[in-house]
């Protein structure tokens, strides 16, 4: 196996608040990395940095053949990034697909239109071709019957699965999931996790921020526990979840398993 995603010494502050101190990890192609950690520990910020939605202060992110050294990404005199840097970020962004906690579907477009929007409008794929592929993707997430519905006509779980299909449509190297089930009613969680599990089985490279420990145990190849802007502990789920070494990991898992 080859390393697909490499993150080196990533750091990010919002004002005085240093959210990411120094984050480094790697992910092999075709593996699932689960990121766990307390609320506010910087998991979303980390994921958004991989997608260049957030510009870290320092650190190097490599996805496939695209490497961005964020220390060199600095705004020009009028607060705008130079063109070459914007193109570099766009190239990095194109490497990943993103599934959000709140699906962020386009409400004015049907499920199918949401899925093919990127391929048609950005990548210039022919509509007919993209439509065929879009229907396949929707079928893959179990929504072939709902292709022509608007997001408001779908349940939360269905919306999230359209979000997954949309993320896959851009043929990303890696799919980023930011707590994809935490906004869902409990009975809808299973559908979404089931789809993610099957994607993992198909060999998609996935980085998943989640609180679903059972999912992480069954599916993850590695688990990162993040706290205070650092990777506190990492390794296979059998170690990090089943047998955590660090007291902060232990405390976090205890709180997660026994909330009361």
């Amino acid at each position: 196996m080859s390393t697909l995603v490499t993150v080196e010494h990533l750091a990010k502050s919002f004002g005085d608040h240093q959210v990411l101190q120094d984050i480094s990890f790697g992910a092999e192609a075709g593996t699932v990395t689960c990121i766990i950690g307390p609320s506010g520990s910087g998991k979303t910020t980390l994921l958004r940095s991989l997608n260049a939605l957030e510009i870290p202060d320092r650190g190097i992110v490599t996805i496939g053949d695209c490497t961005v050294d964020f220390a060199t990404i600095t705004p020009g005199p009028r607060g705008r990034l130079p063109k070459a840097q914007r193109e570099l970020l766009a190239a990095l962004r194109a490497k990943s697909g993103m599934v959000y906690q709140s699906h962020n579907l386009f409400p004015h477009k049907t499920a199918l239109e949401n899925v093919i929007e990127g391929p048609v409008v950005v990548q210039g794929e022919a509509v007919a071709e993209a439509t065929v592929r879009g229907r396949e993707l929707l079928e893959r997430v179990g929504l072939s019957a709902h292709a022509d519905k608007y997001p408001f006509q779908l349940s939360g779980g269905q919306q999230q699965r359209v979000g997954i299909a949309r993320a896959l449509a851009g043929r990303p190297s890696v799919v980023l999931f930011d707590e994809p089930t935490s906004a869902l009613d409990p009975e809808l969680v299973g559908d979404v996790l089931g789809v993610m599990k099957s994607l993992a089985a198909e060999g998609w490279t996935m980085i998943v921020v989640t609180h679903e420990l059972r999912f992480a145990q069954q599916v993850a190849d590695q688990v990162l526990f993040i706290d205070g802007g650092l990777v506190v502990e990492s390794g296979p789920p059998s170690e990090v979840i089943a047998n955590p070494q660090h007291p902060r990991t232990q405390a976090f898992l205890t709180r997660l398993l026994e909330p009361i």
Partner: peptide, 10 residues
Amino acid sequence: GQWEAASTIG
């Protein structure tokens, strides 16, 4: 999120 979703798909 609408801006971000659009930006994520390029």
